[in-house]
Design a protein around this nucleic acid. Structure first.
Length: 425
RNA sequence: GUGGGUGUAGCUCAAUUGGCAGAGCACUGGGUUGUGGCCCCAGCGGCCGCGGGUUCAAAUCCCGUCACUCACCCCA
């Protein structure tokens, strides 16, 4: 039996990696402009880190983690999200001693043992950013403006930013009780799942896709009517910053995030192009988490972008040629083939992507290959050209051909490419 | 964990009532001895997911199983 990858784990193939690299480079560029530095944390952490930060009762911790026991009997877990690890690193390395305000980003794989479907995998990748140490709404705005700018740079203008406030631990509790009471009065008309949710996490009922539950929820109290004065002021200042920066958003008072540690601002970037998955990115404020993990009492806010989901949206909307070889060199006859091999090697050492045919082939076959790999130009050199000292340089897009001297050929080709005579983007 | 759909060539998919396993694309070669994309011809390529059963005969019917996929739950 042929060995295949594990369920929910995917190869990112050569035809996709150029796009991944482009997305990653754009993200790094945007983050750098906003003053964020990269941090790389381990993929494995002590299980306790996640159960204490994400929340014991969340689905992620209770049934989706890849957990194993090391030889000393300690539970270790493949990270299901990035924030916990970054917070741990912030505390452990005393990064706040330098400056409590730390702006960090990271890119890498996460692992959750869920049933795979469209836009959902067991190993998936996230682009994460965290801003530690600042409590004000300007930080919230900063991080939201940054992520929206990135989407803009990537050409994604049809996504919708949803924002909400979950309040602080104090006012959220008031609302939670209110909502629980509202739901229990109507529990007879709720679906089975929601009756359970109404007890342990009533906010989750907002996410239910059953029609009857949606109807009930549409009349439910809004958290925005219950948040305390401080939380309300924070939220309205955030909106002011966003408005002044030209950020478009919708206020979604039913937006709930799945992790326990969120407080106040939460946001999600949604799309209808990902099947049942509507979020391509999500984040929010988690002011209590650093202290909860025995660090200093500093606030924080961050987000995660689903890399696969992001790439899927881009693949859908723009087509772009990546990695076209600058030149294909066709040699005819043993002498020319040897020459071509040398030139190709020299060009590659100069950083120019050059290709050739390895076996002896006719010119037609070589031209066909040049076309198939998308070479921008082709050089043709046979016996006649070796004698005359002039090769034929063909532009594969325009079919223009001209002679090019074989003495100092490599420098000549480099000059042509650098001068933009060829077709560059 | 639960439900639906699909498993046939590298890819996308056909195969009538159970009767020789096919097409398009891709790949290789040729038509054109030195010029790519279009056209024509030929070639290469199959455990019909796997195991069992029914039958003279199974890709096709039955049972089981596995995989993929979409959806639920939940999330990026």
């Amino acid at each position: 039996m042929e060995i295949s990858a594990i369920k929910g784990f995917k190869d990112i193939l050569p035809r996709e990696t150029a796009l991944w690299q482009w997305v990653e480079a754009e993200a790094r560029g945007v983050f750098n402009a906003f003053g964020f530095k990269e941090i790389r944390t381990p993929l494995l952490e002590k299980t306790e880190l996640f159960s204490r930060s994400i929340g014991q009762d969340t689905d992620i911790v209770s049934k989706e983690m890849y957990t194993l026991t090391d030889s000393k009997g300690e539970g270790i877990t493949l990270r299901p999200e990035a924030t916990s690890s970054v917070v741990r690193a912030y505390i452990q390395n005393r990064l706040y001693q330098d400056n409590p305000v730390q702006k960090l980003y990271s890119i890498g794989p996460m692992f959750r043992h869920e049933r795979p479907q469209k836009g959902r995998f067991r190993q998936f990748h996230q682009i994460n950013a965290e801003l530690f140490g600042d409590p004000g709404p300007a930080s919230d705005a900063d991080i939201i403006i940054m992520i929206m700018h990135l989407f803009n740079v990537l050409g994604l203008n049809d996504v919708v930013l949803n924002i909400n406030s979950l309040g602080c631990p104090v006012c959220r509790t008031v609302f939670r009780d209110k909502l629980r009471a509202f739901l229990s009065e109507r529990s007879g008309r709720l679906c089975e799942d929601c009756r359970r949710r109404a007890e342990y996490n009533p906010l989750r009922v907002f996410d239910c896709k059953v029609e009857s539950c949606k109807e009930i929820v549409s009349d439910a109290p809004s958290i925005l009517d219950f948040i305390c004065d401080d939380c309300a002021r924070h939220f309205s200042l955030l909106r002011e910053y966003l408005d002044n920066s030209g950020i478009r958003y919708v206020i979604n008072h039913r937006l709930v995030r799945g992790l326990d540690y969120y407080s106040r601002t939460t946001f999600e970037i949604q799309t209808d192009r990902l099947g049942a998955q509507n979020a391509v990115a999500g984040g929010g404020r988690y002011d209590g988490l650093i202290k909860q993990l025995e660090g200093p009492d500093y606030p924080a806010i961050g987000f995660g972008i689903g890399f696969e989901r992001l790439v899927a949206l881009i693949e859908d909307s723009i087509k772009k040629d990546y990695n076209r070889p600058e030149i294909f060199m066709a040699g005819l006859g043993a002498d020319a083939e040897k020459k071509v091999f040398g030139w190709v090697t020299e060009l590659r050492r100069s950083g120019i992507s050059a290709e050739m045919e390895y076996g002896s082939k006719g010119l037609k076959a070589q031209m066909k290959k040049a076309d198939r790999i998308g070479a921008k130009r082709a050089l043709i050199v046979g016996e006649d050209e070796l004698v005359s000292g002039k090769g034929i340089l063909r532009d594969m897009d325009t079919k223009d051909q001209k002679e090019i001297g074989l003495d100092n050929l490599v420098q000549g080709i480099i000059n042509i490419i650098k001068n933009g005579t060829g077709h560059r983007e």
